[in-house]
Each structure stands twice: as C-alpha cells, then as structure tokens.
Amino acid sequence: MTPFTQHTGIVATLNRSNVDTDQIIPKQFLKSIKRTGYGPNAFFDWRYGADGSPDPDFELNHPRFKGRSILVARNNFGCGSSREHAVWALAQDGYAVIIAPWKAAGGTRLPAYADIFRSNAMKNGLLLIELAEEEVNVIFALVERYEGLEATVDLPEQKIIFLAPEHVIYGFDIEASDKAQLIGGLDDIDLTLQYESEIGRFEQQHDPFLSPPE
C-alpha cells in the first residue's frame, strides 16, 4: 500500500446522501477477477448517458472538476453492498480523499461512512475524512464560489486546508492505528502474522462447535 502523508488536489462535490456502492460501481463491473480497471466505470449509471458519452448533467462531469482528487459528498457515503470494487473504482478514478459529514439524529451521531466501506477504504489507502455538517456546508459553498478550488490534506497534522482566499482550515479525527497504518503504508496481513503464535494457541483451546468451557 502506498504511504499517505500529504495530498493536494482539486475538490469536487457530489450533493447526495446515502450514496450506495451499487452507484459507485454498478454490478456489471463486478464480474472482473482483477483488482484494476474500475476507474472509468466509477458512478457509471450517473456518469454516462445512454449513448455512452459523459452526461453533462452529472455534477462530477462538470469541466470545473477536471483533474479532481478530493471528493466531498453527504452523509452515509458507501452504504449497501460490501463490494471493495467501490473503493478500487474511486481510487483508480483518481480520488485520494473523501470528505463527508457525520449527522446528528435522535441524540446520536450517525457516522459519515458505512462500516464496511470504511474498512475497505483503509485497506486501500483511501483517506476518509469525517467533518461536521456545518463544515461540509461551508466546503460546498467554497467549491461553488471558487472554480478549481484546491485543498491540502495533512494526515500527520490531521487537518485540511482549503486554498481559497479565506484559507479555511478544518481539523479532523482519525483512529491512531488507522493513521499509523496509512502513513506507514502497512499491510494488514503482515501486521496480523506477527501474532501467528497467539492464533495457534487460541486454536488449541477453541472448540469448532463451541461447547461450554469444561
């Protein structure tokens, strides 16, 4: 996995909540047995018209977003199917960072990203940033105001700087272990195999049908 420390790129917005992984990469592209080749098919049904040409009405096709690498969307991004192909498609389509808001509902905090998508993103070095809804609203307004707006994401410092005249800066939270793994570009399986002897010992005393302890 490529280490992630800092990233600067153009910010694109997708004003939708509950973007499910069926939208990010539709089912017909899941027949591949490869990990590559998904980029051009990200958001396929929204992105292309019936004749196969880019649909000018789809937000992300707007010329102002050409070369974008930071995607800002609404709450519950990546819900639905567990397909890791969705993360592969986003990464291969040139996105390095996704930003979405958590949402308050009934006294609880609903996370910005669905659980399985979050885990898949981590395994592929795609940085998911969770901000407050007001902050994401400000970003949408900035992107609207400044064509070609860029931002710099600094993972070690846990902040994102929007390079607009007003220089908006937001800090973000991330699990310390996720941060270390992204910065180190570490492989999960290698990390786990350090504990191989513990796994072996566990298996010695673990009943496959799980009867009660003797």
Binding site: S119, N120, N124, D188, I189
Partner: peptide
C-alpha cells in the same frame, strides 16, 4: 457480518480479522 475482499484474504490467511468492538 459482511467483509470486503482485502478482509476475505486476511481471513483466508490468518482465520482472524482485526476489529473494533461495535
């Protein structure tokens, strides 16, 4: 629970998953 393909590989190799308690 459902997992992604990287985790499928992780389980095939280690029979474990790294998880935060939900």
């Amino acid at each position: 629970f459902g997992i992604g393909t990287s985790e499928v590989e992780h389980v095939l190799v280690t029979q474990t998953l790294k998880q935060h308690e939900p």
